[in-house]
C-alpha cells in the first residue's frame, strides 16, 4: 500500500481507538476530578459492560440491531447500579480516603473479575454489530461499524459535555469538584453527588465497552488496558478538563496508530509509551490542566 493511504488508514484506526478511549477516560476523569479518588476497578466496569452486552444481545432473538440496542441501554444501567452499590457499601464507609480507596477498588476488581469468570467464563465472545457494511475506499476496505462507533462516541461526548456545562446538575457537580466543603455549606448534598458521579463514571465506561464489543469481543480480562489507557489520558489531558481528556484521547489513539506506520510494532509501542512520559515531564499539569491549587 502507498504511504498516503496507509497513513489515512492508521489515522482512521487511531480515531476509533480514541473515540472509545475518550468515553472511558471521561468516566474516570469525572470520578477522579470530583471525588479525588483513583478507581482501580474502572476497567472492570468497562469489562462488565462488554460482558453484559453479550448477555443481553444473546437473550434477544431476531435482528442483531435490536439485541445491540437493548444492550446499549441495559448494560450501562446495570453497571451503574453495581457502581452505586460499591460506592455506598465500601467507598463511603472508608470516607474516600485516597490510599484506602486504592486497596478497596483493587478488592472490587478481584471480586468483579472472579464473578465474571465464574458466571461468564473464560472465552472471548463476540457480539454481532448492529450494522454490517464494508466501506470500500479506493485503496482498502474498512469496517462500516467502526465509523458508526466514532459517530456514536462523538454524540455521547457532546451530550456529556452539555450535561456538565449547561445543566443544574452539571453545576452542582462542578461546584463539588471545585470545593466540596463549600459546596456542602451551600446545601449541596455532596454525599449523593458522589454516588451519582461514581455511577455515571462507571456507566460511561460500560457504554464505551458496549460500543467496542462488536469489534473486540467480551473477555473477562479485557478491563486492564482501558484502565491504564484512560488513566494516562486523564493525566495527559489535565485533571478535570473534559476538553483536555478528549484531546488527549485523540493524541494517544492516533499517535499509537501513526507511529506504528514507521517502526516495527513493538518498537512503535515503546516509542509511543516514552512519548507520553515525555509530554508529562515537560508539562506535568497535563496539556490543559491548571497548576493544582
Amino acid at each position: 500500500m502507498d504511504f498516503g493511504p496507509y497513513l489515512f488508514l492508521a489515522v482512521l484506526e487511531g480515531t476509533v481507538t480514541a473515540a472509545v478511549l475518550a468515553l472511558t477516560a471521561l468516566g474516570l476523569s469525572l470520578v477522579f476530578g470530583v471525588m479525588r479518588i483513583v478507581n482501580v476497578a474502572h476497567g472492570e466496569f468497562f469489562m462488565l459492560g462488554a460482558v453484559l452486552a453479550w448477555w443481553f444481545s444473546s437473550m434477544v432473538s431476531g435482528s442483531p440491531a435490536i439485541g445491540f440496542l437493548v444492550a446499549i441501554v441495559m448494560a450501562p444501567l446495570v453497571v451503574g447500579a453495581i457502581a452505586v452499590l460499591c460506592e455506598r457499601t465500601v467507598l463511603k464507609r472508608i470516607n474516600y480516603d485516597p490510599e484506602a480507596t486504592i486497596v478497596a477498588t483493587i478488592g472490587i476488581l478481584y471480586i468483579i473479575q472472579q464473578l465474571a469468570l465464574t458466571f461468564y467464563g473464560a472465552d472471548a465472545r463476540p457480539v454481532q454489530a448492529p450494522v454490517n457494511f464494508r466501506v470500500v475506499f479506493p485503496w482498502f476496505g474498512y469496517s462500516g461499524y467502526k465509523l458508526v462507533v466514532i459517530a456514536a462516541s462523538a454524540v455521547l461526548l457532546l451530550a456529556t459535555w452539555f450535561v456538565l456545562t449547561r445543566t443544574r446538575f452539571g453545576l452542582i457537580m462542578r461546584a463539588t469538584q471545585f470545593d466540596s466543603e463549600t459546596a456542602q455549606a451551600f446545601a449541596i448534598p455532596v454525599d449523593r453527588v458522589y454516588a451519582v458521579v461514581f455511577a455515571i463514571g462507571a456507566m460511561l465506561a460500560a457504554t464505551a465497552a458496549v460500543l467496542i464489543v462488536p469489534i473486540q469481543q467480551a473477555h473477562y480480562l479485557m478491563g486492564g488496558d482501558p484502565l491504564l489507557l484512560s488513566f494516562i489520558v486523564v493525566i495527559i489531558g489535565g485533571l478535570g478538563s473534559i476538553f483536555g481528556t478528549v484531546v488527549a484521547a485523540i493524541i494517544i489513539g492516533i499517535s499509537d496508530g501513526v507511529i506504528s506506520v514507521f517502526f516495527t510494532p513493538t518498537l512503535a509501542k515503546i516509542l509511543a509509551t516514552l512519548l507520553v512520559a515525555l509530554v508529562l515531564v515537560l508539562r506535568p499539569q497535563g496539556l490543559f490542566g491548571k497548576t493544582p491549587r
Binding site: 488508514l9 492508521a10 484506526e13 482498502f140 474498512y142 510494532p265 513493538t266 509501542k269
Partner: peptide, 16 residues
C-alpha cells in the same frame, strides 16, 4: 515478518 506486540488490541493498522 510482522511481529505483533502482546499489548495490542486492534490489528488493522498492521495489514498494509
Amino acid at each position: 515478518l510482522i511481529p505483533i506486540p502482546p499489548t495490542e488490541t486492534s490489528y488493522t493498522k498492521y495489514f498494509p
